[in-house]
Amino acid sequence: MSYQSMEEAQTRCGKEGIEFWKAVQLEDAEERGVTEADSWKEMKRMWRAMLDGLDAYDPELMSRSRMVGKEGGLVDAYRAAGDTLCGDFMAKVMSNALKMGCNNACMKRIVAAPTAGACGVMPAVLVTYYREYDVPEEKMIEALYVAAGVGQIIANRAYLAGASGGCQAEVGSGSGMAASAICHVKGGSTAQIGHACAMALKNLMGLVCDPVGGLVEVPCVKRNVGGAFNAIAAADMALAGIESQIPVDQVIDAMKEVGDKMDVSLRETGIGGVAGSLRAAEVVARMNM
């Protein structure tokens, strides 16, 4: 039975003297009746797919609606000029988030994490860090377990789909998962992993799902940048010793409450939010949808 709360997972970690990622791996092996090695192999496949996915980006491609595609290339060029506001590392995070989002919109291969719309957040944070700091690959795969474990708790208590709970459930959850994951890579404790997730989720709470024309393009691609930056900020706060005053399980419950109250026009119907703007109507008319 998968973990219903962070508290439950943390209790197991304390009792058995294991790290959070290990608790998630053990649970996966038990749940699916596979060995720990098999579970690891599958997670490694996800990791490699993230690496390959980023490398496959093509700035010349455009999405079917022609709204997105070149953004990753633009940020690469901007960063190469060496005059970004956010600094070199964060500019790489930005570019990678956009690249994965564009890949998704352009029908290339991605890892849904937790969903296709939010697929850029995790690789933007994790792959960028991995390539910048030369971390052992094993550490990154452990980090994916951390992310998956956190994501599963969110799924068990709330949801991970924009149609159910708005974008807070997709990019918001992706951001919480990435915050926990990178916090682990940087040596954060199990408690800090929880705080990182809680802070990331709180910062994006209430985010609506408003895709123009119902397509996973606008605002989705750029929103992945927001999710990735937010994840890094939350992880850094946790690593600095800042604690979420509200425990992560209760933050997730609050997110569920907010999602339940969200009007249906703001849950992937392509009606409200920026999907309801004048420009969106023009785009839809142009596409003749």
Partner: peptide, 12 residues
């Protein structure tokens, strides 16, 4: 957990 992290798929 591979429904959370995964599937590997072609978008969008």
């Amino acid at each position: 957990i591979f429904d959370i992290l995964g599937p590997v798929m072609v978008g969008p």
